[in-house]
Design a protein around this nucleic acid. Structure first.
Lengths: 219, 219
DNA sequence: TATTTTATTTAGATTTGTCTAAATAATATT
DNA sequence: AATATTATTTAGACAAATCTAAATAAAATA
């Protein structure tokens, strides 16, 4: 399946807006891509023809499984390039989006495989968003530090990446173990600490150090 | 000056074919870009409009100073990406061209500056071709090791980058000094040594070690 | 020099991705 | 339910980059 840059951008937008299984409106896509609804309708016909979206007149748009697979590849490329720009070229995380927007369209499977390897196969990008693997699987669990209440409120603890006994003891004392459900109350920019709450208990704060090592999945 | 990918490719082809100051033919560009002469004529009108080429009907095409400046930027981007692919992602030098062909069109001054820096500001790419600097200057002199008889036969010694007395002594004994003219007879892949000849003298071989430190310019 | 061959250009068409303006469908409001 | 509003689609146009076929200019050859 060889897509143009424009087609890739539409697929990516639909993926972003779909968020679960919802159907996406023509207008929403037009706004997201800074284009006109009429253009979206035109492109919808093409992408339907290619079996990348489900589309019926006036009924909204959603990705087919094939479309979703491609969307995940694009997201993967985008986020790996963002890692590269920040980790290797010392860009700050807020200036990489535009450049990654261009780099993501460079087509070479081998390039992406090697880039990922070169970066140590990261699972989250500089913004904390998860990076799909080569097969399009998004690691359901991600470090707590990468989330905020805008992206996920209710979470379940899926594991701890640092197995040092001091950390485990600390978590144990707080009542955090595998399967514990957490709510994010607030994230504090200045030291990247996060205030969380376990059902029926008073809220407490976790340092960046700690929340980096708590792997969670959103519910 | 914001150019499309197609325009950049034309500029690059013209630069490549121009080789000095010669005027380039419509047919030659069409062949180089795997397109039709009629398309070249169309594009020639656009590029003339933008003052990047000199063009008169039936009289061939050449870059203006502004066009040459842009060509050098594109060549710079292409060759830096090739360095990245080979040095950092372990591609072999013969598989990087296609990918660099895409990467070179990513537009960000800052990206290229930082990429160059990350790579240690190399002056030649994996094929041994010189990399223009940020101002479009091509280092006229390059290490002898980066050349072979296909790219340059008759050379002039422009300097020695390693000033150790043992190397200077060695070169002196061979009759190599500033301004000496050399011909490349053969390069040997297996140890990257090079056989050279000074006018009227028998040929002799220089190790990679030595030829890395001899800066030459082609005549 | 006249003629043939080759190179280049023009004219007109096509594809992709976009637009505006008008028409139509879906939704919200009275 | 009728009407107004909003969302979406259609129709027709445009710019970029390309093509083919035909016309014309330049160069090579007889």
């Amino acid at each position: 399946m060889n897509l143009t840059v424009a087609e890739e951008n539409y697929i990516k937008s639909i993926y972003k807006l779909q968020d679960g299984n919802a159907v996406v409106s023509t207008n929403a896509i037009a706004y997201e891509l800074d284009t006109k609804p009429a253009s979206v309708t035109d492109m919808a016909k093409k992408l339907k023809e290619k079996k990348l979206i489900d589309y019926e007149k006036y009924q909204g748009i959603s990705l087919t499984p094939e479309g979703r697979k491609i969307a995940l590849q694009i997201v993967r490329r985008h986020r790996l390039w963002e890692c590269f720009l920040v980790d290797k070229l010392s860009f700050s995380w807020d200036e990489v989006h535009e450049i990654a927007e261009e780099l993501e369209h460079v087509r070479s499977e081998k390039l992406i495989t090697r880039l990922s390897n070169f970066l140590g196969n990261p699972t989250t990008d500089p913004h904390g968003d998860p990076i799909p693997d080569a097969l399009g699987r998004i690691s359901k669990s991600q470090p707590l530090v990468s989330l905020d209440k805008a992206t996920a409120r209710r979470l379940e603890v899926a594991g701890v990446s640092d197995q040092s006994s001091s950390l485990l003891e600390f978590l144990n004392a707080k009542g955090i173990r595998l399967g514990t459900q957490l709510d994010i109350i607030e994230r504090y920019e200045f030291d990247n600490s996060v205030e969380v709450k376990i059902r029926n208990q008073p809220a407490f704060t976790l340092s960046e150090q700690v929340s980096k090592n708590i792997m969670v999945k959103s519910l």
